Amino acid sequence: MDTAALQQRSDSDLFTTASRLMTNALEPGANYTQVTRALEALLALTRQGLAGDAGAYAHYQSALLQLHIPGDPRTEPTRRWMASEVYRVEDEFAADLPGFTALPVEAFRQQVDAEIAARSRVNHPMSVHLFQGTPPVQDVRFFLEHHWTRSYNFYSLLAELAFRFEAIEDASVFYRNLYGEAGAETPQRSHPAMLAHLMEYFDIPLAIDFPALHPLEKAYLNNRIRCVRHTDVAWGLALLYAVESVSCVNHRRIYELLQRLDVPEQPSEFHRLHGTQDEIDTEEMWALIAKFASEEGFQRTFMRALKRHFEINKAYFDSLWQQMQAQRLSA
């Protein structure tokens, strides 16, 4: 057996062992030794994956997503603790910003907004195909299926980040946003319920098969959860500001696409609504960011979080574009 084959077998054994240890650790009656052995294996995979091993990266992202998605309530404390230890390793590998210089708050916002504009999805080939071309319905359906995967539980990100703030006036920024996400006084008009109407129109299942997702999609979902759970609020604020500040434009483009496809108003309402209202949420969030942005350490971490978000986001959208093209060719 050659060296490459031996290495492949060794990697396979490592992944199998880590998976078995994780399964045992997430049993409700698991003891401390089982949990720590599984965590040691997961952290080894995390380091190996972040060092460039694609197989280890895929396996650690799968394991982390397993820790993130709802499971047996009795294992919730274990899953959160294990995930938090993974975040510590990810912090070690997060790229620093050589030559970084702190700016006055207003200049800092200009820098942040310029960075977000430069990394906009608008110019991605998949976006150009969908929003400036004449995509077949199967491509639109594929896009919307993954749009549901990353959008259906956005409210949970707001809730997680709200808990990071001790002052109620700071947390209230996210609670006001949550009130709208929940449909205000009408739960039937909650944003997930409204978006579900569009999925049903395109016959897209609402249940998500998380294990079947592409590793880069898992990485995208994991990073969002990691950021809003991070003990340093700069990570969560950067992530949500990056998402909210482009929300109006992105949703408006989707709404216009749905209009061109003659999708009725009720299934389109989620995107019509979000094409106008998110600017208010963005300004409220920046007012909160500005309270912390005079500190150099906050600015540095905020920009590191943006850099990581956009790197993961680009890899994720590149993979979706490749999958969309492959699906079309095989049809």
Rank of each mutant, 00 (worst) to 15 (best):
T3L: 15
A4D: 12
A5T: 12
Q7L: 14
R9T: 11
R20T: 12
M22C: 09
L26E: 06
L42P: 00
L45Y: 00
R47E: 13
G49I: 00
G55W: 04
A58N: 06
A63E: 01
P70A: 13
P70M: 07
R74N: 11
E76N: 06
R79P: 06
S84T: 03
E85H: 04
E90Q: 14
A95D: 07
L97Y: 03
P104D: 15
P104Y: 05
E106Y: 06
A107L: 12
F108A: 08
D113G: 08
D113V: 05
R119E: 15
S120T: 15
R121N: 11
M126R: 09
Q132G: 09
V137L: 15
V140N: 03
R141V: 01
E145T: 01
H146I: 00
L157E: 04
L161N: 03
A162L: 06
F165Y: 14
A167F: 06
V173A: 04
Y175F: 14
R176F: 08
R176D: 12
N177K: 10
E181G: 07
A182R: 07
G183H: 04
P187V: 08
S190F: 02
M194T: 12
H197A: 13
F202N: 02
D203F: 00
P205Q: 05
L206K: 09
L206Q: 09
A207C: 03
H214G: 03
P215E: 11
E217N: 09
E217V: 02
A219P: 06
N222H: 09
I225W: 08
C227V: 04
V228Q: 13
H230T: 10
A238F: 02
L239G: 01
S247Y: 02
Y255A: 14
E256S: 07
L257Q: 01
L258I: 07
Q259H: 10
P264V: 13
Q266V: 15
H271F: 11
Q277W: 05
E279K: 10
T282N: 06
A290T: 14
F292Y: 14
A293Y: 05
A293G: 05
G297H: 11
G297N: 12
G297V: 01
A305N: 02
K307Y: 07
R308C: 08
H309Y: 14
E311M: 04
K314Y: 11
D318Q: 04
Q322N: 11
M324P: 00
A326R: 14
R328N: 10
R328C: 08
L329C: 10
A331T: 13
